[in-house]
Design a binder for these strands. Structure first.
Lengths: 217, 217
DNA sequence: GATTGTGAAGAGCTTCACAGCT
DNA sequence: AGCTGTGAAGCTCTTCACAATC
């Protein structure tokens, strides 16, 4: 039983990285993995890896490392990948449709039970096995199916309203692809994925390495 | 002329948030904005906003705030949005096609000059005004067009190879949508966008707020 | 009166280094 | 010998608080 109080955000992000390494290692029949190896494959220092994994108690064995199977199980459980998460998609535009079809989501326990869109043209179409429903059905569907997660892939102006609707319907967490800040009650988890943000970071970093930021009027 | 030495990663991320607020404010003819207002709309404390903006020198006026126009210009410039970035897409699957069609990219100065895919079925198709080319053309095209940015949206196993190819062709930065760590020479900027990561963070946060992490064998 | 810019304090994260275990 | 777990040191980021400015 991990001491979750001490798991910081940076740590939980790295946990995802460790999990990914473990998943590729499991196929290869490796019995153990050391903090050094894990670190090398994730770009993290070995001491940091050990600190991160300390929340699992004494999982590693000195002189050997961590049993891959046990560590994999522990990470799956910690990151909530040992259960199925009922999920809905709101917004079936280009991005939304790509997300619906993203095979990795289904493989990792995210079960899309419904998808919604405002456009009459889109409603009724079948994508990745789901028929797109009108927004008017959203609240009812989330409640009835006890959906826990919502993916928001609508234009920024609609995002706040959609989020509120999901929260009213009893959702627990939102993955937000709209470039818009969602100010939701505590108790509702929000993770933002913002493509423009990411590209701006990239442009900024390139300029930094160029020593190129001079023009500032 | 900002002192870029002191701009930390957390700060540059928030700069993107400030820029977004400014862009919506500009339309509304507001002359000035205070650190308090900026903070309220981004979820950042006012003192933090002022510290972040300190790299621009004395841009703000005590008692008044920051002139929206000047701040907007400064942020555009800092984040590299005052120029056009020649960009290629590698991988024209569901995600790749959605990215090509994402209108925000074009609006913010990212100019897609070419797109590539391995699948013969996909090559030759026209998406968002671009004809998908075979991978064999990638290196030549990047060199000839002096492309600076690459978007990688290929399966994880192919990502490393594609990245190497882009680097060899002289690219400056990579936005990586493949769930795979890219270990590239310093001087090449990499920003990762990992959907599975994001969903794992969400699942983890929900469990945290549930106080639900008990089972750990 | 309102707001900036910033030194100093506070909080948090990472790295070091080593005792202790296998 | 090799590796973990961890206290302590070092570093970075955030928040506070207030003099200076408009």
């Amino acid at each position: 039983m991990p001491n979750t109080d001490r798991i910081s955000k940076p740590t939980s992000r790295r946990m995802s990285l460790y999990l990914r390494v473990l998943q590729s290692q499991l196929d290869m029949q490796t019995n153990s993995i050391s903090s050094k190896q894990l670190g090398a494959q994730t770009g993290v220092k070995d001491a940091q890896v050990r600190k991160d994994l300390a929340c699992f108690g004494s999982l590693g064995r000195p002189g050997v490392g961590y049993r891959t199977h046990d560590l994999h199980q522990a990470l799956l459980c910690l990151l909530g990948m040992d259960q199925t998460w009922k999920t809905v998609l709101v917004g079936a535009g280009n991005i939304g449709r790509a997300l619906l079809a993203y095979p990795r989501f289904r493989n990792e326990g995210f079960d899309f039970v419904a998808a919604f869109d405002q456009e009459k043209k889109t409603v009724g179409k079948r994508i990745a096995g789901l028929v797109i429903q009108p927004m008017s059905e959203l609240k009812k569907s989330v409640k009835q199916n006890k959906v826990q997660l919502g993916l928001i892939a609508v234009p920024p102006d609609a995002a706040v309203q959609v989020a509120q609707c999901l929260v009213d319907a009893g959702i627990r967490g939102i993955l937000n692809f709209a470039p818009k800040r969602l100010d939701l009650p505590s108790g509702i988890a929000v993770v933002n994925v913002d493509f423009t943000d990411a590209l701006e970071q990239l442009a900024f970093e390139i300029r930094l390495s160029n020593n190129d930021i001079k023009v500032m009027k």
